[in-house]
């Protein structure tokens, strides 16, 4: 599985929605329930899934799926 597919599984798990399909342009506006609270849950779940760590500034700067993918790629 590539990064995007694994990330999609994390999104489905965090937002409890098996229908979610992500693209690099997907933002909080496209996913029901993606607010500042679930954003942190998402970041922690991504950290656990990929075995990476994001700083405080990186956590708040990730605005879309593409940002997640680029940061993960730079770490793994």
């Amino acid at each position: 599985m590539d990064i995007k597919e694994r990330l999609q599984d994390v999104f489905r798990d965090v937002f409890d929605d098996e229908e979610i399909v992500i693209s690099e342009e997907t933002t909080a506006a496209d996913i029901d329930g993606w607010d500042s609270l679930t954003h942190i849950q998402l970041v922690v779940a991504v950290q656990n899934e990929f075995g990476v760590k994001f700083s405080m500034v990186e956590t708040s700067s990730m605005k879309n799926v593409g940002d997640f993918i680029r940061l993960i790629e730079s770490r793994v």
């Binding site: 500042s36 942190i40 922690v44 405080m56 708040s60």
Partner: peptide, 15 residues
């Protein structure tokens, strides 16, 4: 406060 107080404390508790 979301970025500099809530996020780090929530992340700390969740991790």
């Amino acid at each position: 406060i979301r970025d500099y107080i809530f996020m780090p404390s929530y992340k700390l508790l969740l991790s």
